[in-house]
Design a protein around this nucleic acid. Structure first.
Lengths: 157, 157
DNA sequence: CTAACTGTATCACTTGACATATACACCAAT
DNA sequence: ATTGGTGTATATGTCAAGTGATACAGTTAG
């Protein structure tokens, strides 16, 4: 469970935490039933405020990824292996949703759009350190505190 | 050239302007050489500050979409017909870029990601009423039966 | 030159997200 | 009950984005 945050990356710390924990679950490093590090432990290890950790944990609970019991450490929720995959696809779809609007707005055909996506993926197939990933420029898939509106790129519903 | 902005959409006004102007260029309503409405004209028409219009114009210039001459209206930059299509693809790629990161982050394969995208596009394809079927409350350039042929081009001065 | 148009640089204000400090609530073991 | 562990609600501070009022600079026509 290696977690690294970069306060200067432009990506909110609590979101970096969420992303990395989600990633660790998705890749099996964190299994259902495992306990997450305590807020204070992570806090001193990463040099961030416990509340920031707690905020990340709260959102993870809201996303049904983690289970909260008062006074006890958080544990990874029991989800079937398949469910984890589904969750990843779901994440992807959320990230993709605004783009679907753009496609229609630009009047592109589905094929053109799909092909562009495939090419883009291929071109970025650089094997760069899979671990964490604090990146995620501006258009976040979701899992934010807001979620409400305001997005980047092009607008959306 | 119908432009509508919704200050409550959560999407910054200047970005709504950019998106709609880009869209009008992509769809041919605005052609290279056309002049854009003056900042003050658009300002009073939309009820926003001229500076907000100017900000949108500035970004459009930064994106090489429009040309600025001091004291003169902005004009759509001369891009070849083919370039317009490329520009749309380019827009799409920009919208897609963050998602490419997410894909890697989630450890999904290209195929899975591409398929999810294709499915998403298909699912948003309204079966009835061909056209655009678009769900896009806030930012939608040419929606509405009005417009007809009334205003277009940019002249308006 | 003056007038009327263009765009915009500068500054002030508002708003919201983010991170934090403090204090509190819960649980388990002593 | 006390102690030491857990997570977190609340209020405060910081900072950047978005917007707007004002004043200024360039162009064109009279």
């Amino acid at each position: 469970m290696l977690i690294v945050v970069d306060p200067h990356s432009g990506v909110p710390v609590y979101r970096q935490l969420m992303d990395q924990i989600k990633f660790h679950i998705a890749s099996g490093i964190l299994k259902p039933g495992d306990e997450l590090p305590s807020t204070r432990a992570l806090s001193s290890e990463l040099g961030v405020n416990p509340m920031t950790i707690s905020k990340a944990y709260s959102f993870l609970e809201r996303d049904d990824i983690v289970e909260r019991r008062p006074g006890r450490p958080l544990v990874v929720k029991a989800v079937g292996g398949g469910a984890i995959r589904d969750r990843r696809i779901e994440e992807l779809r959320k990230s993709l949703a605004p783009t679907a609007t753009v496609v229609k707005q630009l009047g592109l055909t589905d094929e053109e759009a799909v092909r562009a996506f495939a090419e883009l993926l291929e071109s970025t197939r650089e094997p760069r350190d899979g671990g964490d990933a604090d990146n995620e420029p501006d258009n976040e898939p979701n899992s934010g505190p807001d979620d409400g509106a305001a997005d980047e790129e092009v607008s959306r519903a």
